[in-house]
């Protein structure tokens, strides 16, 4: 029997199997992520790319007439359409009013409800309930409460001698009304995030600061607030994006009025696409909104990074 390793014979190394452990793990990995990936490609990336192309066309949905117009939709929105800048202004006012109010109230509620006490679950539920309440029901009830003289809010104000405005009929008051009612609707979500963050801060830090003679305000400012910073950033980003995308609340409470005083970007896009059937123009506006939200998010991330260094 000849030896396998006879001198002078060439020994061919056994061929490595194609399905190596690494390859197998790679394939398995792709298979695991494929449901999400396919969904992402079909329902997110695909439409996003399509919107870019639509935004370069003049496409009337009803007549199905489509003309390539290049950047004309963007040019019209940015330089010729006076409503567009009012819409941007309204969106900025809405966000500037809603984000700080929402975050401050959420933090205050979280500080009050983070520690266990008798009935804490009841109060947390009360403040979180509007988040899971139907947006339609919420808006209709508030619309009813905010009527002119006959509205419950104004009747309550009248009992203390205040002549309340016609909330949803005067542009400035209407904007204030939709901001406050939106904050009341959504503050519970941020409150829960802050409660989770507060509960993850070790009590030792507070106790150490207290032993050092720090006041409650100093403990909050020097210990708790810096440790809440990552959560604050996340909340700020989510709330800002949400405020620029607000649609249902405006649609149901004011329809963008009065005098276009609450006509915000998402509602304006809806109006162009689904009332005027100008899909190309609406797509250009949607791209502008995408860029604004993206820019705000990047700015907030940069500020956060600068803050942490």
């Amino acid at each position: 029997m000849a030896s396998l390793n006879e001198p002078g014979t060439t020994v061919r190394a056994p061929r490595a199997p194609w399905l190596t452990l690494k390859r197998r793990e790679t394939i398995e990995g792709w298979l695991f992520v494929s449901p999400t990936l396919i969904g992402f490609l079909i329902f997110f990336l695909g439409p996003l790319i399509a919107v870019v192309f639509y935004s370069l066309s003049e496409w009337n949905l009803l007549s199905q007439d489509t003309i390539f117009v290049g950047l004309a939709n963007y040019e019209d929105a940015l330089t010729q359409n006076p409503d567009f800048w009012q819409v941007i202004r309204n969106s900025v006012i809405f966000a500037a009013g809603l984000v700080p109010m929402n975050m401050a109230l959420a933090l205050a509620l979280a500080m009050a409800l983070a520690r266990p006490f008798r009935g804490v679950v009841f109060f947390r539920t009360i403040f979180f309930a509007p988040v899971v309440t139907s947006a339609v029901a919420w808006a209709i009830v508030w619309k009813f409460l905010l009527q002119g003289d006959a509205g419950a809010v104004n009747q309550m104000l009248a009992t203390v001698g205040i002549d309340g405005p016609n909330w949803l009929r005067e542009p400035n008051w209407a904007m204030a009304a939709v901001i406050v009612t939106r904050v009341l609707k959504m503050v519970g979500l941020n409150m829960i995030l802050y409660i989770a963050a507060l509960q993850s801060i070790p009590r030792d830090y507070e106790e150490a600061a207290r032993l050092e003679g720090a006041s409650e305000w100093q403990i909050f400012r020097m210990v708790i607030w810096p440790l809440l910073a990552p959560t604050t950033l996340i909340i700020m980003v989510i709330t800002t994006i949400g405020s620029f995308k607000v649609f249902d609340h405006i649609y149901l409470m004011t329809g963008g009025g009065p005098e276009n005083g609450t006509l915000v970007l998402a509602f304006y896009i809806y109006q162009q696409a689904f009332e005027f059937f100008e899909i190309g123009y609406a797509s250009a506006l949607a791209m502008i909104m995408f860029v604004i939200v993206l820019a705000l998010t990047v700015v907030q991330l940069i500020l956060r990074q600068k803050g942490s260094t």
Binding site: P258, E259, F276
Partner: peptide
């Protein structure tokens, strides 16, 4: 009509 009514609405609010 949809564009006309949308353009009219804020002016009639006033």
């Amino acid at each position: 009509a949809p564009k006309i009514l949308a353009a009219m609405k804020p002016r009639f609010d006033a």
